[in-house]
């Protein structure tokens, strides 16, 4: 099995880390270097979503509370509130929704500020996650990249990573400095969320429903060209990193938690072969586990 998964990653020109389990039988699994801690890119928004929901359960945050985000202090990004020109007033639960469904950087950083790194770390520990660290959000990630590349803005810094003729600056993909997790820990989080072990019924439903509404279909979902198969996922993209952590539910109700983390050899922004390889690896894993 590992040889087959390895072959898919090699063919796509990526280093891959993977863990997949059946939610009905967590002993049934497919794994490839599943304990290696990898920088998460936007997959950190998944533990943040779970942490936010936990604080709602504890009564520490009111999901309907409104906050106003000013354009000057919002994190840049290609989607959601990051793109807007004017101040936006939005509830905390809608911030979480935008963060998780379209990977909205501005919403995620605003929510991370409210949840707090320290408070989130405590929650993740209480969830039993031993190899998951949310150490910073997207804005801090981009600042670190700018420092390492010497570029004066985020777009220029990302362009350095995308250039196949240049060497990546040292430490850009270093797990230790940014938010990071192992593939095994990500599937543990998904399994416990889906089992309702971490949150109230209401918040469990909020997390599941939100993740089912993610709009990106080119990775895990691309391996399942059937509308009867439901995918609840969170992708992550930064430089050459391409990830997704998802729960795949088949028409008969059998469900599987899958985390696929990859680092591509090429730097290009657009890498359709890598997206497809993530879908193919997910499909192979589900076919083995079902």
């Amino acid at each position: 099995m590992n040889a087959r998964i390895r072959g898919i990653f090699e063919d796509a020109g990526v280093r891959g880390w993977m863990h997949a389990i059946s939610l009905d039988d967590p002993e049934a699994r497919v794994e490839l270097d599943a304990d290696v801690v990898v920088p998460l890119a936007s997959v950190y928004k998944l533990p943040l979503l779970a942490g936010f929901s936990r604080l709602v359960d504890l009564g520490e945050l009111d999901p309907r509370e409104q906050v106003t985000l000013e354009p000057s202090s919002r994190t840049a990004g290609p989607t959601g509130l990051s793109m807007f020109a004017d101040p936006v007033t939005v509830s905390l639960r809608d911030l979480a929704l935008s963060m998780a469904t379209v990977s909205d950087n501005a919403a995620a950083d605003a929510l991370l500020d409210i949840v707090g790194l320290r408070r989130l770390a405590g929650i993740l520990e209480s969830f039993g996650l031993r190899r998951t660290w949310v150490r910073r959000g997207t804005a801090a990630n981009l600042r670190d990249l700018q420092r390492r590349t010497g570029a004066d803005n985020a777009d220029a810094a990302l362009a350095v990573l995308a250039d196949n003729d240049r060497t990546d600056p040292v430490g850009v993909y270093e797990a230790a400095s940014g938010s990071a997790a192992s593939a095994r820990d990500l599937t543990l989080l998904l399994r416990r969320l889906w089992a309702g072990e971490l949150l109230s019924a209401e918040q469990t439903e909020f997390v599941k429903a939100t993740m089912h509404r993610q709009i990106f279909l080119q990775r895990v979902a691309s391996g399942f060209p059937h509308d009867g198969v439901r995918i609840a996922g969170k992708t992550g993209t930064f430089g050459a990193l391409r990830h997704e952590a998802a729960v795949v539910t088949l028409p008969d109700g059998a469900a599987f938690a899958i985390a696929i983390l990859t680092l591509a050899a090429r730097g290009d922004f657009r890498q359709p072969r890598v997206e497809a390889a993530i879908g193919e690896a997910a499909r192979v894993a589900v076919d083995v586990l079902r």
Partner: peptide, 12 residues
């Protein structure tokens, strides 16, 4: 580009 997986590499 090639997948280097932990090897040290010089400039391109």
């Amino acid at each position: 580009p090639a997948v280097l997986d932990g090897l040290e590499a010089g400039p391109v």
